[in-house]
């Protein structure tokens, strides 16, 4: 009987404490406590992350041999196509530079980048978020775009002194103002459960084709225009719908992120 009365007392106390913490969190007042608590496991996360990456790369070598052969053949074909494309692009570049000079445009493609390493994932698997080893001390701020090999992978949602959390573009809470690169039509790219993305709110008058590149629209100050997000996959919309909708295939492997860059 004594056990139950003691358990009930402790449970009631902790329940009240939890409700207080939820209230403070929703109001945004629990930030200092959360920030301090988030720092505590950091050294252990580093150690485990290092061990985990070594094991992953060791086993990854064996499993990747057959994949590498297939990729090699595909890449050889791609190189030939890209060589041809490159010649055309060089001509465009010259033309573009001339135009920029004439119009006095500032070169928008030069971002100040902060390099970072992914040290962990969301431990519960209910959201697509990763933890980086860079924080406010390195100049990272909330809302900044995170790139991997030049491709947008997410946005910074929380920043601590030495770490930061990135909400990946595949998370359902992620909404990005996007543009179809070819036509310049605006749309929204949303994350969806199961590591995918959908492009939504595309006008019915727009010709949406599989493989079309999707880039950022630059409507938000934190997300510069023209950063590649992915390419259009399967069309999901119906003909009588107001807007078109399609899946978006990410242009980088979001499940195996290692090194990323954050735009300053």
């Amino acid at each position: 009987m004594r056990f139950f009365s003691r358990t009930f007392t402790v449970f009631s106390f902790l329940l009240a404490l939890t409700l207080l913490l939820i209230f403070l969190h929703v109001r945004g007042l629990a930030k200092p406590v959360e920030s301090t608590a988030a720092q505590v496991p950091r050294p252990f996360v580093y150690v485990f992350s290092g061990i985990g990456n070594s094991i992953k790369s060791f086993f990854g070598y064996f499993s990747s041999v057959s994949k590498v052969n297939n990729q090699n053949a595909e890449l050889a074909a791609q190189v030939r196509t890209l060589q041809q494309d490159n010649i055309i692009l060089q001509q465009y570049k010259l033309e573009n530079e001339k135009l920029k000079k004439e119009l006095g445009y500032k070169d928008l493609s030069k971002y100040q980048l902060i390099p970072g390493t992914v040290i962990g994932m969301d431990p519960t698997g209910y959201s697509q978020a990763v933890v980086l080893n860079i924080g406010s001390n390195d100049g990272v701020r909330v809302g900044a775009a995170v790139l991997s090999e030049g491709v947008l992978v997410g946005k910074i949602i929380t920043v601590e002194s030495f770490t930061s959390k990135v909400l990946l573009v595949t998370d359902p809470q992620s909404n990005i103002d996007a543009q179809i690169s070819l036509t310049g039509d605006n749309a929204i790219v949303r994350g969806s459960y199961g590591s995918g993305m959908v492009i939504d709110l595309v006008s019915q008058s727009v010709q949406l084709n599989k493989g079309d590149e999707v880039v950022t629209a630059g409507l938000n100050a934190d997300l510069p225009k023209g950063i590649l997000i992915g390419s259009v996959g399967e069309l999901q919309s119906q003909k009588n719908g107001l807007f078109q909708k399609a899946t978006v295939v990410p242009s980088t492997d979001l499940k195996n992120l290692n090194f990323v860059s954050v735009i300053k």
């Binding site: 939820i22 959360e34 809470q173």
Partner: peptide
């Protein structure tokens, strides 16, 4: 876990 995950706090 609440601090490190992205679900509703608590």
């Amino acid at each position: 876990l609440d601090i490190y995950s992205n679900v509703f706090f608590g």
